Simulated assay, not measured.
Amino acid sequence: MRKIVVYELVSLDGVAEDPDGFFDDWDDVVDAHLASVIGTQDAVVLGRRSYDQWARFWPGSEIEPFATFINTVTKYVATSKPLDQDWARATVVEGELVAFVRDLKQQAGGDVGVHASISVAQALLAAGVVDDLRLVVAPRVAGQGRRLLDGLPPMRLEAVRSERSPAGHLLLDYRVAR
């Protein structure tokens, strides 16, 4: 069975929206962490807003290792409308998101990533289909913006790994307890 892995950049106060506003000092440890996360993934689920933003940016990007990964991986987009922008290996999620991801989880393959899409991550966490939550916590307070964990039901997480990067980011890997 595949694992569903949520990977998010968040501020110290839990904001995940617009990480460019609080995340500006990437370092080699954060880079290696990202490489280890995406190294096991062969599919990604994105929300429509993230897809639209990323489809404009990543095809021309040379920011590695993520550019090669996101441009070649299968991308499932949670949206009710046709995609306006063409991007390699992108397809619209057929049917209801949680049911689609539960089915995807049962198929053969690598891990399925959820990157940047707050509403998708929240829906999947609330439905209990996420296996791992991997956070990079920036040493900044954003003060405002959508928070990743707002509105979720109580859940228990098991700490799997934690590390501090040279720039002061906390790399926190959790397994969602069943």
Rank of each mutant, 00 (worst) to 15 (best):
S119W: 04
T79V: 10
A116K: 05
L34K: 05
M155R: 15
W87H: 06
V120N: 03
G14T: 04
R48D: 09
L157K: 13
V29E: 14
A67V: 01
L157N: 10
R146Q: 14
V130E: 07
G110W: 03
Y174L: 07
Y76Q: 01
T74P: 00
I63K: 11
D24L: 08
N71K: 00
G151R: 09
V114C: 09
V77K: 10
P153K: 13
G95C: 11
G151A: 10
N71D: 01
I118H: 04
I38L: 04
G95V: 12
G14W: 02
D150Y: 05
F57K: 14
L9Q: 10
A35N: 05
V141L: 15
S61C: 05
D173G: 03
L149F: 14
D173T: 14
V45R: 06
A167S: 15
D28K: 13
G39K: 05
A167L: 03
A116F: 08
L46S: 06
F23N: 07
A177L: 14
P154E: 11
V112F: 09
L133T: 08
A108T: 12
R140F: 12
L152Y: 11
V37S: 03
Q85A: 13
S162L: 06
D132M: 03
L171A: 01
A88W: 00
V10K: 05
G95I: 11
V120M: 05
L172S: 11
V129M: 10
D20H: 08
A138D: 02
A99W: 09
D18R: 13
R147Q: 07
S50Q: 05
R48I: 05
E163C: 02
S117E: 03
G109M: 03
L83A: 08
P82A: 10
D86S: 13
S50M: 10
S117M: 03
V130R: 10
R134V: 08
A138M: 03
V30Q: 07
V136T: 15
P19S: 10
Y76R: 02
A126Q: 14
V120G: 03
A67W: 00
P154D: 11
F100I: 12
R175I: 04
G128V: 12
A159E: 13
E158T: 14
E64Y: 00
S162K: 05
V129T: 14
R161Y: 15
R156D: 13
D84S: 15
A159Y: 02
K105L: 00
T91W: 09
V29T: 15
G14V: 03
L125M: 15
L34N: 08
Q41T: 04
L124N: 11
M155I: 12
A116I: 07
Q144V: 12
A108P: 09
L104S: 02
V136C: 10
D52N: 05
V176D: 12
T40Y: 00
V30D: 05
T40H: 04
W26M: 13
S61P: 02
A55S: 15
A16M: 11
M1W: 04
A99R: 14
S162P: 00
W54S: 12
L149Y: 07
L9M: 14
E94Y: 01
G151D: 07
A35W: 02
R164Y: 11
E96F: 12
A121R: 10
F66V: 08
L125A: 10
S119I: 01
A138F: 02
E64G: 01
V44S: 04
R156A: 13
S117G: 06
D131T: 14
R140K: 15
D52E: 15
A16W: 00
A88Y: 02
R175P: 01
V160C: 07
W58R: 01
V136M: 13
